[in-house]
Every structure is written in structure tokens, then in C-alpha cells.
Nucleic acid binder design. Sequence first.
DNA 1: GTCTATACAGTGATAGAC
DNA 2: GTCTATCACTGTATAGAC
Lengths: 185, 185
Amino acid sequence: MPRQIAERDDVIPALAEVFRTHGYDGASLALITQATGLGKGSLYHFFPGGKEEMAAAVLAQIEGWFATKVFEPLRESDPTRAIPAMFDAVDAYFHSGGRVCLVGVFALSDTRDRYFTEVRRYFATWIETLASALEKHGHEHPAARDLAEEIVGGIQGGLVLARAADQPQLFTRTLTRLRSRAESG
Amino acid sequence: MPRQIAERDDVIPALAEVFRTHGYDGASLALITQATGLGKGSLYHFFPGGKEEMAAAVLAQIEGWFATKVFEPLRESDPTRAIPAMFDAVDAYFHSGGRVCLVGVFALSDTRDRYFTEVRRYFATWIETLASALEKHGHEHPAARDLAEEIVGGIQGGLVLARAADQPQLFTRTLTRLRSRAESG
DNA sequence: GTCTATACAGTGATAGAC
DNA sequence: GTCTATCACTGTATAGAC
């Protein structure tokens, strides 16, 4: 049986881009149909729950990406390699400051309440996983958790500043600073 | 002549709260009339430009607050007193992590484009003013600017994390860390 | 599965009485 | 200055043809 031309997962990147750029409320179905190239009929066929289900699917995809590309390597690999690899992955994911964090966008508005479980888990997992890796890398126990919070928070703040000034290199600079701070264990 | 019961400036805090909580697109006139206690007639009397002018007035109010309470003290006072005072003011302003930064919220979505001048200036002024104060306080020239970026970005990131986890103390912890980093000049 | 047509609640905004 | 009534429009969502 021939593979369908459009699968549900194929439209998720376009959906993510719309939610990232316009936020949940700003992401109108008009923008979504335009970005995905699908009519409302097709969209509601894939996502019977409408916009709410679309955003949930995007969050699940993001969680899966970070689980595979960031969290698992941090847990399993040698932290001396895994921690720099995390910064590389993050730099690539956020397009070196040219793209913001959808979970961060959702976190700041009342959209957080609609996806509270997912939003909280995203940051909590990131911080906890990174803290463990930093500890294995030689940082002291309470300080490692604090440093992990500083790094994850610093990444979010760097994205805010980079987009506010429309200067992606502000994010790159932030990453460099945080990277060296993680090294000095 | 008796002072009017409702002045334009009196409704700005309520407006700010709505935009902060729901974002620009999520801040409907229904929410705004509810939060301000004013009908649409009164709102459009004060803000003929509608929502766009309301948000602009809020941004102007915020800019004024920071100019008076943060930027000017940083420029004029002894940095040894002004820098800790900045952290105190920021802690109070953001309700110790219980309130997010409206300019940060706007920066992350396409609302930034509508208020690009104001958004960019807010962070640029903050970073530049803080960098000068840090230099006067003993930090080296290029490092002071870098540290100022780290502090302002760290504050924004701390607000994101605190709201994502619904744990304001995450912001307080961030402030403490940044505070001590500014001291070690 | 994808489209067009449509329902209908909610949007920002305006007009006019008081 | 504040209200109510109302505007034109866009919002999400649904129904049904193909």
C-alpha cells in the first residue's frame, strides 16, 4: 500500500513554526493553513481536537527531540563529551539564536496553564539531567544543580535578548559563556 | 476643578497586567474591560488608537519606571550602592518571580515587530547602563559588558523558568546568583 | 483524505444617547 | 466621560460533496 502523501507528522514542523512565531493565540487557522498547505478539512482530519491538539502534538514532538538528542546523551555518554555535545545540539536547534523556544513562549503567557504538565516537565527534565551530568563531570552536589539552572535559564534569557535586539549573535555569545562555565568543573 | 475619577494613567497598571498575563493577541477587549472596569467607550476615549495604543502606553509606562528606578540610579549613584539597589528594585518589580516581564513576552512573539523600537531600547539601555556601572565598580571593560548581558539575560531566563515551574523561588535563586557575580568585581 | 461552504461565537472598533 | 447598541470582520469548528 502506497505511503500517503501527507502524514500527520509531516505537518508538525510547519505547525511548530507558526506557534513559535505567533504564540498560541496569535496562531490563527488562517496562518496554519497557509504554513502547512493543508485545508481545514485535512487539518481537522489529522487533529480532531483542533488547535489545542495541534499544539499538544508540537510539544510532544519537541519533547521527543530533546529526549533523543539531549537528555539521553547526557545520561548515557561520558559527560566530558556529552555536555559540549548538548551545547552544539542547542545551538543548532535554536538556529544560533535565530529561533526562539516554543516552550519558553508558552511558559510566559497563560498558555502555560493549558500545557502545564508538558511545560514544567520540559525544563525540569533538562535541569535535572544536566545537573547529574555536571556532577559526574566533577561539580559538587548542590552547586551542580545550581549551575544547571543557570545554564538552562541562561539559554532562555539569551533567546529573549537575541530576539529583542534582532541580533542572534547575542545568543551565541551566551552559549559560549555558559559552555566555559560548565567546563570549569 | 475636581480631579476626574478615572485618569488615563490610572488604568495603565490594569492594562499592563492583562498584556503581561495573556500576551498581545490574547489580551481581548473583553478581558481589558473586565480588568479596568471601564467600558469600551471610555477605553476608546482614552486610547483612540485602540489596543495598539494601549500596549504602547503600557510600554511607555514601563520604560519610565525603569528609567527612574533603575537606569538613573545606575548612572548617578555610587555603583557599590546602585548595583545592589538595582537587584532590589528588580526583585520587587517582578514580585520575586511571581510576575513576568511584559517586554520579554512581547520580544518572543511577532508582537516584537510592532514595538521593535521600544523592545530593543529597553534591553539595550539596561545592558549599557549596567555595563557602565559595573565598569565603575571595578570590572574590566570588555568583561563588564559581557557580565551585564549575562545579568539581564539571566533575569529574563529566571522569569521563564520560575513561571514554567510555577516556582517563584527559582527566580529569587537566580537573582542571588547574579547579585554575587556582580559583586565579585 | 482533501476540498468548499457554512455556522456562529467572539473580535476590534464605531456611533450616538445621556 | 461613560454607557449601550451595533458594525464589519475574523476566529474556530463543523458538515458534506467528491
